[in-house]
C-alpha cells in the first residue's frame, strides 16, 4: 500500500491556514455589518425567482400568504408572518423545511431562503 502523505500531527502550517481563514471570516463579518447598518425604516423584500414581488413594512404586525396559483414555481402556498419587528416563514412546503424551521429573524441583510420554492426574503432599509 502506498505511503500516506497526510500528516496526523498538527503542523505550524495548520495554524497559518486556520488564522488566515479566521481572519477572512472576521473581515467578511465586519464588512457586512458596516455595509448593512441602516437608520432607514426596515422592510421585508420578498423575492420569487430573483424578482422582487412584494415589500412589507416590518413595523406592522401582519400575516401574508403567497399562493401557488399565482406563482407556479412554488410547491405549495407560502405564508409569512411579521410580528414585533421580526419576520418568519410561517408555512411552506419543502423536503427539509429549512426556511420555516429558522423561525423569526430581525437581522438586516440575512436572507431566509426557501430554495425548492425559488423564494426568499431579506430585511433591508427602505430606499
Amino acid at each position: 500500500m502506498k505511503k500516506r502523505n497526510v500528516k496526523l500531527s498538527k503542523t505550524s502550517f495548520d495554524t497559518y491556514a486556520f488564522c488566515a481563514i479566521f481572519l477572512l471570516a472576521s473581515l467578511t463579518f465586519l464588512f457586512l455589518r458596516i455595509l448593512l447598518t441602516t437608520n432607514a425604516p426596515l422592510v421585508v423584500n420578498v423575492f420569487v425567482e430573483n424578482k422582487l414581488i412584494d415589500t412589507l413594512d416590518l413595523s406592522v404586525n401582519q400575516t401574508k400568504t403567497y399562493l401557488k396559483a399565482d406563482y407556479p414555481v412554488f410547491i405549495d402556498d407560502i405564508t409569512l408572518e411579521i410580528k414585533d419587528g421580526k419576520v418568519r416563514v410561517e408555512k411552506e412546503e419543502s423536503p427539509y423545511h429549512y426556511c420555516s424551521i429558522q423561525g423569526f429573524t430581525g437581522t438586516v441583510g440575512q436572507p431566509v431562503i426557501c430554495l425548492p420554492n425559488s423564494f426568499y426574503i431579506v430585511i433591508e432599509g427602505l430606499k
Binding site: 500528516k7 498538527k10 503542523t11 495548520d14 491556514a17
Partner: peptide, 8 residues
C-alpha cells in the same frame, strides 16, 4: 504541498 495535517 505535504505541509498540512489532516486537521487543516
Amino acid at each position: 504541498t505535504n505541509k498540512f495535517s489532516i486537521y487543516a
